[in-house]
């Protein structure tokens, strides 16, 4: 498996797929590196020896059946798993920007500012749309009206929500539709200006139209952010991602360029899953 990863890092990223035209040429550097990573919930091992890299300004999709550990790994990248009492790391490390994020000296607050997250169930705060977007700034003590106004407009535009809500920024974020709520959550994450955006099945509760909008959004965000997305929907993975990683039973089975994974998977299990024979 480590061979596979090595393979990937060595050659692929230069001639990537899809919308690479807009990208700066040359290989982007690996921003997230997971090495020999074991993870446990209590006695139960959830992740086995994960080795992978996610590169700057790329969209990486995690696919696999339920309970395969893809969300667990995602939540390890910004240490949201710290909230789970029994969670612990067995072995290995995760590096973001060449810094080990499980180093005891790491300030999780700073880490989470750099690594934003969008959750499966849209969870806007029961506050106004405006306050939702600037929450991340407010808690940093930024209260200057001009900065906040500018951020709200920029982030809502960035999340393709501005036109729909510009006249009602004072209404509650809870009053929006499901898809709008999810885009609001993305806007809220953008306001903190992270480098990386983790998305945990962001479209699983949305209808096809809202899903299409969020996918479009992911495309446009790619130029400025490194995105890792967990999805159950394989068409979605195919549509939005540059790289795809297939997980099964806590192991990384195969990772590679999305095209290659979907067209010519090397591993039998991957092939079986993608063709819908299980999962």
């Amino acid at each position: 498996m480590s061979l596979l990863t090595h393979n990937l890092t060595a050659k692929t990223s230069q001639q990537t797929t899809q919308s690479m035209a807009s990208k700066p040429s040359g290989p982007s550097r690996p921003l997230i590196r997971v090495s020999d990573f074991d993870f446990f919930y209590g006695e139960k091992q959830a992740l086995f020896d994960i080795n992978m890299e996610m590169r700057e300004n790329e969209v990486t999709a995690f696919i696999g059946p339920s309970g395969c550990g893809k969300s667990t790994l995602l939540r390890c990248i910004n240490r949201m798993n710290d909230l789970v009492e029994v969670a612990r790391i067995g072995r290995g490390k995760i590096e973001v920007n060449d810094a080990d994020i499980y180093d005891p000296r790491v300030d999780t607050i700073e880490l989470r500012k750099r690594v934003g997250m969008v959750f499966q169930k849209s969870n806007p705060f029961p506050k106004s749309i405006y306050e939702n977007v600037i929450y991340g700034l407010r808690i940093q003590g930024i209260n200057k009206k001009s900065v906040l106004d500018e951020t709200v407009e920029r982030c809502l535009k960035g999340a393709a929500l501005w036109e729909e809500v510009r006249d009602r920024l004072d209404t509650s974020g809870m009053s929006l539709s499901g898809g709008q709520q999810q885009r609001l959550c993305i806007a809220r994450a953008l306001a903190v200006e992270p480098d990386i955006l983790l998305m945990d099945e962001p479209c699983s509760a949305l209808d096809p139209v809202a899903t299409a909008k969020v996918e479009e959004l992911i495309h446009s965000l790619k130029d400025h952010y490194t995105i890792v997305i967990v999805t159950h929907n394989m068409q979605q993975a195919a549509r939005v991602s540059d790289k795809t990683a297939f997980f099964y039973l806590g192991k990384l089975i195969e990772m590679g360029k999305t095209d290659e994974i979907f067209m010519s998977p090397k591993n039998e299990q991957t092939e079986a899953y993608i063709s819908g024979r299980f999962g």
Binding site: L83, R112, K113, N123, F125, Y135, I139, V192
Partner: peptide
Amino acid sequence: GLREASLALGASKWTAIRTN
């Protein structure tokens, strides 16, 4: 979800509790 969302935006535990 409200606690997680706050923490994911860089809030400390106490900030998340106090605000959300």
